[in-house]
Amino acid sequence: MTIDKGDSAIEFRLDPDSGVPTYLQLVQQVEHALRLGYLKPGDQLPKVRDVVATLTINPNTVLKAYRELEHKGLAAGRPGQGTFIEATLEQVTLPELAGLRRTLLGWLASADAAGLDEDGIVALFTSGLRDFFKTSGGRGNAGQRGGGSRDRAGTAGSADRSAADDGTEGVA
């Protein structure tokens, strides 16, 4: 069944098992769409009530995501009309993405050959990711994540927790 919402360029989808907070998933999807060129300045983001109706999430979550985008300077709300894209991100073209992906798969093969299982790879990668953005700042969103103790955005948190849970006996 096709649902045609019309106005907005993109549609959101949620990954409930990713461990990433909902509002952050929405932010990331907008940024991803900007990088890939699906969204351009002037495009309207989906209306709050449409997102709410399709994804069955709290409207405040959508508002929080849109405010975060405003805070980052990527979007702005126009009273009575909706939220619109204001700026753009460095676009990563599709060939660039394909190249990056190939490199990544190569690295994964090396890690696998070295004896790391999936959880080990994830732990290694997220710790490296955090360190990278903490120290070097990167060219992307430097101050937005990492720093201090793990927050909910870090999948390392859930990985550690699942590893720790293996050895416990529940005591109420």
Partner: peptide, 18 residues
């Protein structure tokens, strides 16, 4: 509190993430 032989988990209330 959930306690094993060597390891324990405490679900604690703090005043903030920091």
């Amino acid at each position: 509190t959930r306690r094993g032989e060597t390891q324990a988990h405490l679900l604690a209330r703090t005043s903030g993430p920091a």
